Simulated assay, not measured.
Amino acid sequence: MRLPKMTAWLWLEVAVLELLLALWPLFALIVAGYYLRRLAFPNEAFWPGAERLNYYMLFPALLFSSLATAPLDNPALPRLALAVMLALASAWLALLLVRRLRGWPAGRFGAFAQGILRFNTYLGLAAVGSLFGQPGLTLAALMLALMVPTVNVLSVWSLTAERGVSVRSLLLPILKNPLILACLGGALVNLSGLGLPGGSDRLLSLLAAASLPLGLLCVGAALKPEQLGGEVPALVGNSLLRLLAMPSLAWAVAYGLELPAMESTVLVLFFALPTAPTAYVLTRQLGGDSQLMAGIITLQTLLAAASLPLLLMLVAG
């Protein structure tokens, strides 16, 4: 009876080691970005420019190339679409109920909603690539094509609900989002059958290769630990909901739909990611509680260093 038990423990140790080996370089880049900015290296003007370069050029190149070559007839797509929409709809309905009970104004509700619904895409794709390689990145790109527009619509609505929102003001940020445009363009190229001729695939792969490490450095540079001093219960509660409750919801949906192992893991991973640093920019632009949003982003990113390996280990088990 001892041999199976020892074998199971050995497998668990190997799985944990593989997860740590895949994830620790990602968080090392985040920490490096934090200290580089605090040391003013290369200079303060570098980081906003790096964020814009990544957001408008490098990261869209990664999404475009992934979807342009993805098998859009993949049988995983309908399953993933159903799983993503079920999980997001459940979370959104719960948020609306809590808002009604607590009476949150739109500025505060928008920060809480983004803390629970949005996700750090850079960290997610880097983790999926480390764990599953190109097949995982293809699944992740399909998921992003579904999640990015949906989450952006809900984020804008949550921040503007009290003022009323027109269709134009709701859709304009979506239509101008470079990530959404890249997903749409990649899907259209894929469906057209044109492919990526004339070395364009190599150009896109070079741009994409620079995206994830630069994105993780920028995530670290955007951390603001000084924002963690106020509203501790709100920050902790929001972080626990995002990092523990949301992946639990995703796991329940994946289990109910009987998703295959890799699809389940990718789904849970994206629902376990800390919220997106760009949520701070949107919150500030739309008059939300930007200080609360900055605190949520920072605390979730710090806690994710512990929660992500634990959750992935449980899902893999």
Results as ranks from 00 to 15, higher is better:
S200W: 15
R284L: 14
E258A: 15
V219I: 15
A261C: 05
T298I: 01
R168G: 06
L19W: 00
R38G: 07
P247V: 08
G317P: 00
G185I: 09
S66F: 05
L146T: 11
A161V: 07
L188H: 07
L82E: 12
L88G: 03
P78I: 04
M262P: 07
A140W: 05
V189I: 11
W251S: 01
P277R: 02
V128Q: 11
L223K: 13
A141R: 11
R99H: 13
A83R: 07
S130N: 12
S166G: 15
Y122S: 02
L139V: 12
L243M: 14
F270H: 10
A254N: 10
L179A: 07
P48F: 08
L62A: 09
Y122R: 01
A161E: 11
G49N: 11
Y34P: 00
L303G: 01
A89T: 14
Q291A: 15
T7L: 13
L125Q: 09
L235Y: 10
L206M: 14
S65I: 07
R99C: 10
P4N: 08
L188N: 00
L310F: 09
G133T: 03
M262H: 05
L212H: 04
L311R: 02
P149Q: 01
W11E: 13
V151D: 09
W92Y: 10
N120W: 11
Y55W: 06
V189Y: 03
T7W: 04
L137H: 06
L243P: 09
G229T: 07
Y280S: 08
I116D: 01
C183A: 14
P309W: 06
A127G: 02
L154Y: 01
